[in-house]
Design a protein around this nucleic acid. Structure first.
Length: 565
RNA sequence: UGGGCCGUCGACUAAUGGUAGGUCAAGUGCCUUUGGAGCACUUUGUCUAGGUUCGAAUCCUAGCGGCCCAGCCA
């Protein structure tokens, strides 16, 4: 059973399936496939395709295969195969058949021979360069290759010798004989096989000729009896070719349906460019929490549920657009708000001394684990005379609408007491390094005192003597531009890299309950955001990644204030 | 410039000839022991011009705008 799908609005692909079901086009069957090329890690754009392929089949009681499109041995590796399987499973989907395009190399070869015999394919001796010249341009038709009308026997012989490894890479190709004057360049005698003396991750050195995508994909779909073969818009021009091979071969008529690829603001979703970031060490790896890869956002703390909800919400169409990153962030917050345990952490500590609190006293305060989920219970948090609060939560001269601590002002310490700031201690530079307060014993637990006085703000804190020291990594967008591909003349996308996308806070203070938090566990640091334990944490010293900040109403006010000086 | 595809609030997406609706964002208010969450409310949209029709986002025509295609990549 696949991850259950929330009721989603319909879309044009579902409508096609509904229609096919009604007309009994495929005997009531729905069979899809997710066909990644194992040449990189999966990213959030693939998640959209995965949710579609698996989700739609699941909805109609159909099946989905995972098929690795491994027709180009020079780029593909088992490392990628393994990561792809892990990521699909993590997203919550289960494939029915597990296949590789390379499973079909023998059959594909046999069909190629069949097409040669039918006069529909020929061996071309033209070089890659010459082929390009013969292809014509967008506005001019191509010219027939001088080898186009080679007799069948000669084609058969040459193709057999290509397969036998008699010719060097690039010396010959097998081409489909279609129409060099077609306005669709894909139909101008597309290459079916090229010579590549390369070792394949699964077939080893068995082959030195490898099928092209166009020749392999449709037939692979057909062999698996795929009914609805979804792919992205850029393959629209390939559909006539997809259908042409299937028709010439007279095999199961899979149909290709194209939808719009996911674009996200401030994000790059190109395997090539992501690989470049990894190779140039501009990120720490494919799973850098700033990467839009599945493994990256997993390490960042996103949940499969959030990603699935996001994919469901964005819908599917043929419009070329870009989703705002805020949409993705909304769905993590929504999920984490419901499930993440709350905890108190101080990122940038400011020492607070409660002058009227007994010197060596420690109290255990009751703190709710998750107000959204009463069953999550509560925990004890130690309170004492010396605390840390957030530097942001104190202003010596509070701006308008700033409700937090400042001289003479009273605030609530969450789950603890009301405190009033009485004085500050500054260093030589005039910076406030210590705040002195008094507390009101009648407000224990944070309760409103008998006199009913209210406080405008509640702030978080940790007990200095009990807090554990942790590293916290704060992430911002990897790119500074909405469309990172949009660059100035002569510059590439890396010029849009955000130099401040990672901020390491080495000595954050965290309540002691999390000393042994396991890798991958997710929490809300109250008033700050959602954080998860990085898998690279050393035992006893957790490292936290910020998944996403909480929405911050004060930040908006502050921004507005500074925007209109 | 040949071919293919696509134009609906700021973003994404519904409405399948019959009330332009939802989500995100933005804003306002309520509530609040997280300036979180929640709740309520609000703003903004059918690319343009013609046509068909009782009625058009939807059908037709013509414009305009955007994306994709000239790998022996997928």
């Amino acid at each position: 059973m696949n991850a259950s799908a929330e009721p989603r609005p319909s879309n044009f692909i579902r409508d096609i399936i509904l229609d096919d079901l009604k007309t009994n086009k495929y005997a009531g069957r729905v069979q899809t496939r997710f066909p990644p090329e194992p040449n990189g890690y999966l990213h959030i754009g693939h998640a959209k395709a995965i949710c579609l392929d698996f989700g739609l089949a699941d909805e109609f009681g159909g099946k989905t295969n995972l098929r690795f499109d491994d027709t180009n041995p020079s780029k593909e590796e088992t490392e990628y195969v393994d990561s792809i399987m892990e990521d699909v499973k993590w997203l919550g989907f289960h494939w029915d058949g597990l296949f590789y395009a390379s499973d079909y190399f023998d059959q594909l070869h046999e069909w190629a021979v069949q097409l040669i015999k039918a006069g529909k394919a020929y061996v071309d001796d033209l070089s890659a360069d010459e082929i390009r010249k013969y292809r014509g341009t967008l506005t001019e038709p191509g010219k027939n290759s001088p080898y186009r009308d080679r007799p069948v026997d000669e084609n058969l012989d040459l193709f057999a010798r290509m397969k036998a490894g008699e010719f060097p890479d690039g010396s010959r190709v097998l081409r489909a004989k279609i129409d060099m004057a077609s306005p669709n360049l894909n139909m101008r005698d597309p290459v079916m096989y090229r010579i590549l003396h390369a070792s394949h991750h699964r077939t080893g050195d068995k082959w030195c000729i490898y099928p092209m995508y166009d020749y392999a994909h449709g037939q692979s779909d057909s062999l698996e009896k795929i009914t609805h073969s979804m792919c992205t818009l850029e393959f629209e021009d390939h559909r006539p070719l997809y259908s042409w091979f299937i028709q010439q071969l007279g095999i199961f008529p899979s149909q290709q349906i194209e939808f719009d690829r996911l674009n996200l603001t401030y994000t790059l979703l190109s395997k090539r460019k992501l690989l470049q970031l990894v190779q140039n060490k501009q990120v720490s790896g494919w799973d850098d929490p700033r990467m839009p890869t599945i493994c990256g956002i997993r390490r960042r703390g996103y949940t499969p549920e959030a990603i699935r909800n996001f994919c469901g919400a964005i819908g599917v169409s043929k419009t070329n657009g870009s989703i705002e990153l805020a949409m993705l962030e909304h769905f993590v917050r929504e999920d984490l708000n419901r499930h993440a345990l709350r905890v108190m952490a101080v990122l940038r500590p400011l020492k607070v001394v409660i002058d009227n609190y007994p010197e060596n006293q420690v109290e255990e305060m009751d703190a709710v684990n998750n107000p959204e989920e009463p069953a999550a219970g509560s925990r004890k948090v130690p309170f004492s005379r010396v605390l840390y609060i957030e530097q942001d939560d104190f202003r010596e001269e509070p701006p308008p609408k700033y409700f937090r601590l400042s001289p003479g002002r009273e605030v609530r310490l969450r789950y603890a007491y009301f405190i009033t700031c009485t004085s500050v201690v500054k260093n030589e530079k005039g910076e406030v390094v210590e705040v002195h307060c008094t507390y009101d014993p009648a407000t224990r637990g944070g309760n409103t005192p008998p006199d009913g006085r209210k406080v405008k703000s509640t702030i978080h804190w940790v007990s200095a003597a009990h807090a554990i020291d942790v590293e916290v990594r704060l992430y911002d967008n990897l790119f500074t531009k909405e469309d990172p591909g949009q660059t100035e003349e002569g510059k590439d996308f890396t010029s849009n890299l955000n130099p401040n996308s990672l901020e390491v806070v080495s000595h954050a203070k965290l309540e002691p309950s999390l000393a042994a938090a396991p890798a991958g566990s997710r929490y809300q640091f109250e008033r700050l955001g959602y954080f998860c334990v990085d898998p690279g944490s050393a035992p006893g010293k957790p490292v936290f990644n910020r998944t996403v900040a909480l929405k911050d109403a004060w930040a908006r006010v502050e921004k507005k204030q500074s925007g209109k000086p």
